[in-house]
């Protein structure tokens, strides 16, 4: 059968056409994605720590407020970036990131190595009123984070159970203790704990 007559069949048979589109369009995804899903990173990631209840709460607040719209979390292996932000990002650092928060735009600076760069107090002022510490900043303020309790940011027990189902190593004790760890704290505290932990999972040499 020549190519043309084969194509005539496609043009006249909707079932074949649907199948053709589905087949041709799925090839690329299969080749690119399947090998990655089977990648085993347990050895490489043995130093990567799972998020604590407070860090997880902070991370979900980071997601809720859309921080990743303006801040990337992906230091590229370029001289200037390593100098500006720190060691470049490695795949094994992200194995507990659901979803990934690499971002696509740097209206503000990259945050993957922000942990430990500023004091908790600096963050506390900066998150509520960024221009109080950086006069040129165009970041929005988040005053409500200082008013809302950390326990209001979702059911931490259900979240940790969900993540355990996906393979995150939380023990029963971890999950039981979780609500207590959020008690008395505000959302801003959880977010700061998360920011201070960012990028510290990498244990290799810190470049200067």
């Amino acid at each position: 059968m020549s190519g043309l007559s084969l194509h005539k069949k496609l043009e006249e048979n909707i079932g074949l056409l649907i199948f053709g589109i589905l087949f041709v369009s799925s090839l690329g995804g299969l080749v690119q994605i399947l090998p990655l899903l089977n990648q085993d990173m347990t050895e490489a990631a043995k130093n990567t720590r799972v998020y604590s209840a407070l860090e997880l709460t902070g991370r979900d607040i980071y997601i809720r407020e859309g921080c990743s719209v303006c801040h990337s979390q992906q230091v590229r292996p370029l001289i200037a970036e390593i100098e500006r932000y720190g060691p470049y990002s490695r795949a094994e650092e992200f194995i507990y990131d659901r979803p990934f928060l690499w971002g696509s735009k740097r209206t503000g600076p990259d945050l993957h190595r922000v942990g430990g760069k500023f004091s908790d107090d600096w963050h506390r002022v900066h998150l509520v009123d960024p221009r109080a510490v950086v006069s040129e900043s165009i970041m929005p303020g988040y005053p409500w984070l200082a008013r809302r309790n950390a326990t209001q940011a979702g059911n931490i027990v259900a979240k940790m159970r969900g993540l355990r189902y996906l393979g995150h190593p939380y023990s029963d004790e971890d999950i039981e203790a979780a609500p207590g760890q959020l008690e008395g704290l505000k959302e801003i505290d959880a977010l700061i704990v998360y920011l201070q932990r960012l990028g510290t999972a990498y244990t290799g040499e810190r470049s200067q």
Binding site: A91, R161, G162, L166
Partner: peptide
Amino acid sequence: AIPVSLTKSYSIYAGAQDAVVQWW
């Protein structure tokens, strides 16, 4: 994704895998 409440779910992909699936 795995729903953990009516308003929140966690992607079944993590980290770099999630990135590739998302940009696909």
